[in-house]
Nucleic acid binder design. Structure first.
Lengths: 221, 221
DNA sequence: GTAATAGTGTCTCTTAGACAATATGCT
DNA sequence: AGCATATTGTCTAAGAGACACTATTAC
């Protein structure tokens, strides 16, 4: 046994988990993925999917988050980003609990499979969930933090292209941002800002056709 | 023993610490407080002051950071802010280690007393330390993150008044910001922005006198 | 008066919101 | 042609940097 675990014996270490705050943009706005807990505590309550940190399996925190995504949701999540740490004696009835929260934005059509200890996965309105005191533990606060930080980034036009299709039109980008931010954006100004940042590049001669004027297709740049 | 500690038995939990990234504004710019380690590992190396999370003593992470400040530095640190979490199998030779980093800005004249396991406390240039690979563990990266985030806040004029004297002149505020950001600011523009945000209020009839024109004194607002 | 710092004014450039005008493909 | 959406252009206001000017005290 390592010296670190000797320390563990001298002072008990907190019950440490990784929680995933997976968001997506639905037709009504930002959504967050919650799972109905199978137990052992807060059974039946909706909570962020998460799992125990396994120092025998996980090389670091990022790897732990990826493993938990795979186990609980059946999928690898690129672009998981560390969001915050919550720790305290009273946030979990089982004792002193430490949660490292990871955040990611999912494409709308991502396929998920509820893993062990999750009875059902469902998408909820992110703003409702961020203010829903009936969620398990303090997950309401974790969601609020993740939503605020995502909005801050999108507001600054740091776009999460991993959640986009390979090719997209500028109108689609704008609609995406409007749904994240829950407010309308000016078309002209929005395109000017996109062009200034140089974060998208047109695909020469590629257009999305529909019932009216075709739209130039773009890729991340 | 609580259920959480039953979980600890089933899966070993990481060696969890709180590290303090204490910054201050010196005459040459931003400085960070480092302690020379007394052991057991990395003895003699400079590192952020920190300590083991004690779930029997600390109600939550913030309380843990306060306790560590008291034990290691002999002082209470108001306005400690959670900065980030670093965790991995290889960052501490003793085994899987998780560090929750807290950041605070200290007044320049704060009195400190090196606590147990610290042989000496010393202020270093923050930019040098953020690029100094000879520091213990990965503390170089923790410092870089804290410095970047503090600069971001000061850039947005979210000023850490806790590090200010009770009363101050606008020139003193500007000098403070210039030392944090390591660049010059325009006086007129700086005062305009301060006034717009309404974050300082003049003390009617109170002036700082010196060898030349007296300066209006302000307080946080 | 001179030096030194405090405080203000003006000009301009950049950014972005509001809103209008034009372009293009479909039916 | 008429519709719906794409794309561009113009006007304006806010914010901030550059820089110069004025103000006030000590000596």
């Amino acid at each position: 046994m390592s010296a670190a675990n000797d320390e563990n014996r001298k002072h008990p270490m907190p019950f440490t988990r990784v929680e995933l705050c997976l968001l997506r943009v639905g037709e009504q706005g930002l959504q967050v993925l919650l799972g109905r807990r199978a137990g052992p505590v807060e059974a039946g309550a909706w909570a962020l999917p998460g799992g125990v940190l396994r120092i025998d399996l996980d090389a670091d925190l990022d790897a732990a988050a990826q493993r938990v995504a795979k186990e609980r949701l059946g999928i690898a999540l690129p672009y998981l980003r560390q969001q915050a740490a919550f720790g305290g004696a009273t946030r979990d009835a089982r004792g002193w609990a430490l949660s490292i929260v990871y955040r990611a934005l999912a494409p709308f059509d991502m396929a998920l499979h509820a893993g062990k200890r999750i009875e059902e996965l469902r998408w909820f309105s992110a703003d409702d969930a961020a203010a829903d005191a009936s969620l398990a533990f303090d997950h309401e606060a974790l969601i609020a933090g993740a939503v605020a930080d995502l909005r801050f980034e999108v507001e600054a036009l740091n776009l999460p292209f991993e959640a986009f299709p390979e090719q997209f039109t500028l109108t689609e980008v704008q609609t995406f941002c409007e749904l994240v931010l829950a407010r309308r954006l000016d078309k002209s100004s929005f395109r000017r800002r996109l062009a200034e940042r140089g974060c998208v590049a047109p695909l020469a001669g590629q257009f999305r056709t529909g019932a009216n004027r075709p739209a130039q297709l773009y890729v991340p740049a």
